[in-house]
Design a binder for these strands. Sequence first.
DNA 1: CTGAAAGCGCTAACAT
DNA 2: ATGTTAGCGCTTTCAG
Lengths: 338, 338
Amino acid sequence: MGGSKRGGASAGKRPTIVDVARQAEVSPAAVSKVLRNAYGVSEQMHARVSAAVEALGYRPMVSARGMRMRTRTLGVSSLNVENPFVNMLLDGVAREAKRSHYSALIVLSDEDGLTQVEAAKSMVDRQMDGLILITPTMSVADLEALARDVPLVLLGRHGQGEGYDSVGSDDARGAEMVVEHLVAQGHERIVFHTQEVDTTGLPETAREQGYRAAMERHGLHPDVVRGEWTLAGGERLAVELMKRDRRPTAVHAGADIAALGVLSWMWRHGLRAPGDLAVAACDDIPTSDLPPISLTSIDQDAIEMGSLATRMLIERIEGREESRHVRVPPRLRVRDSA
Amino acid sequence: MGGSKRGGASAGKRPTIVDVARQAEVSPAAVSKVLRNAYGVSEQMHARVSAAVEALGYRPMVSARGMRMRTRTLGVSSLNVENPFVNMLLDGVAREAKRSHYSALIVLSDEDGLTQVEAAKSMVDRQMDGLILITPTMSVADLEALARDVPLVLLGRHGQGEGYDSVGSDDARGAEMVVEHLVAQGHERIVFHTQEVDTTGLPETAREQGYRAAMERHGLHPDVVRGEWTLAGGERLAVELMKRDRRPTAVHAGADIAALGVLSWMWRHGLRAPGDLAVAACDDIPTSDLPPISLTSIDQDAIEMGSLATRMLIERIEGREESRHVRVPPRLRVRDSA
DNA sequence: CTGAAAGCGCTAACAT
DNA sequence: ATGTTAGCGCTTTCAG
């Protein structure tokens, strides 16, 4: 049945390093050295082993190898991807990992802080060399505990602690830019919409700070509405704003996905941006650029953020000790909605 | 600093099963049994071991365990996620995996068939119990080879071979539904836009068949334009259609993302759907439902597809031998664009 | 430059 | 019901 030498690597079983050694008539240790390009292997040996590897279609089993050395695998934990912004981050991570000859494995976890911790630990159990956590909502204490077990980079969240790194957009600056732009357009009653959070370091916090600072600098009253950065959250925001006696003239929805909710509601009710209400947000997801939407937004260069986080994680894996916390400068994309 | 008993599991190193055994004053084998809920452990033993596990914060190392048994980990390989449809599939997979107490690890690979094969193999190297491949473009031969090494389910692609399973939308039926709808609206010159593919089983093929069949049934001329299912591809399609002497009155863009390209181009040029051109597509991504877009589309129930594929993979891992190829029925979402 | 032997953390017979 | 021993596939001393 297509089998070859008896007792060999045929029988449907995956060939091991011992099979290769037998085929090449050398020791398993020698094979291992060739595979790792270790120091001290003759041309001859290299050729023999390579031929055998080729012939058997041998591939090292990563978990066995992982018991003695690094696996060259990065773990990425991400919230469920309703938000396309996250996809762009993942894209950046995947590209950079590939470029650096690492594998990146992604696990999807829930908003729930506990599940995130569990997801992260489960990646450690699986011998990942390091972890990238995308906008994790877990506590700082949990993050620090995790960082003691494994090299760690936060992506899309600001960190300040020691022991891990972070890459975030300069959220405060982004929110300021939105306000500056709206003020320049003559707006004065500008609402900011954000999510309730209890953990520090999340974009919500920084964006609100930036908004408040900019408003006050212009002698305007901050007007913050709490809600959710989802489509539905945006619709509820629209309802709330429109039923006010003294309507605002502009809203910074906090995140594109919420802004889309606002625009949808307005559209359905015969209202248009910016005429009835100027709308702006953060994330610059692809949908925002579609002409019928044309949402003014803060571009956070997500792909670059993902790629930077990956480079930083690899540096850490390869020995860096000092923490680095990077804020990537945002850009304002002015479109029709504001 | 802060260490406890000398020689114990303190010193920053992760505790092993031996540490737990020592702490509980039992044998490592006993610990292993408790951990696996294996047959034949006394109440007493269970309590002692559990306490020790708790005390040390012990977690089994999955790769070591994986050398002797299953890892309860599913590998998911997915194309780079420009297309939100894929996210919905992933979402379904993640939920079902969690429900079944499996972990799902995702790897992002390129369009390129070779890279996909490499990505899949690398998951096998990492001891995944089974693989879900999302709309893989690799050859049937490659798929069959892979299926010999590991339980395999294709998601978003039709398969017929033995040795693996598949879950796809009934793409032919979906395309038919679009044509039926357009014909019912009085359209006769209906273009179908698809991607060039060389591999069988992909949605492109089935959708084109469904389109042709439906057109012919109504005595209409099939009119197929090749291009790319991307935003840019959709814009090129619009250009091509609009410069024709005898313009079509409707287009089935093949995929929502391409339809958005068509709509964008039309919008920028002062044209509107369905007045100037009726536009419909497949995928029903969230953006299509936004009022300013309102794209008529085929809802493939991606979340259910992902979840079904996951259940099927687990069945296979747990012993099923016969192949199953499922076609999930699509639904037409009629909106303003057609 | 190469090979023999020990061991990574765990499970699976086999004793007891 | 529990412990002993061997070994999964690989790397790593350490001799030769």
